[in-house]
């Protein structure tokens, strides 16, 4: 009986030690002063700002380096204007670089499908419906750029994922797909 007691005790201690390992908490560090940044890390909390966040919105009216203004407004009228007047600044080197395809296959393919027929993975799985085929819509490079920038109906804006130049590359590739449908 004594032996059983001892074995149980030993097992219990082993389990107790083993259970100290916890994946939900970070590990110990040697010299944390060298690990933890003195300056504010990206997305960290910070007491320096009123709302307690390191990530702040830029001051009102400021623009980032290389900013290009986009003068068509986010409305039906703006859409029509962009469709009629907006022209792509890309040269033939950009158009043939294959970058548009690369970006399309990251940002558009899930809904619009690899060939632009509106049968992407999300549509196939009935998560996101009503994506039209490019062929069924009257679109120009200007209107595509406008929709990428502001979104349209159920499609959201992709302006923060794609730079102006990248949006033009994608618009060019969309037209290429449309001509092949």
């Amino acid at each position: 009986m004594k032996r059983v007691y001892k074995i149980t005790l030993l097992l219990g201690i082993t389990m107790l030690v083993a259970s100290c390992h916890n994946d939900k908490a970070p590990n110990y560090q040697y010299f944390p002063n060298m690990y933890e940044s003195v300056g504010y890390e990206t997305y960290s909390e910070s007491k320096a700002f009123a709302n307690g966040q390191e990530g702040q919105l830029p001051a009102k009216g400021s623009i980032n380096r290389g900013f290009e203004p986009y003068e068509y407004e986010n409305s039906t009228a703006g859409y029509e204007l962009a469709k009629a007047n907006l022209k792509s600044p890309l040269d033939s080197l950009d158009r043939n670089s294959g970058k548009g395809k690369e970006l399309y296959e990251i940002y558009c393919i899930s809904c619009h499908g690899a060939s632009g027929n509106g049968k992407g993975k999300l549509v196939e799985r009935e998560k996101f419906l009503g994506v039209p085929s490019y062929k069924d819509r009257e679109i120009t490079e200007g209107s595509i750029f406008h929709v990428e920038t502001y979104g349209l109906n159920a499609m959201g804006s992709h302006a923060n994922q794609l730079s102006v130049h990248e949006r033009w590359l994608v618009a060019d590739y969309v037209l290429k797909l449309r001509s092949q449908l």
């Binding site: 899930s110 993975k121 999300l122």
Partner: peptide, 24 residues
């Protein structure tokens, strides 16, 4: 749903950090 990693972590293509996707 086979959404590309870079759809949400778009900063990974162009910046030092991969970025926590903003809620938009």
């Amino acid at each position: 749903n086979e959404i590309n990693c870079k759809y949400c972590h778009s900063a990974a293509r162009v910046s030092k950090t991969a970025g926590i996707p903003s809620l938009n």
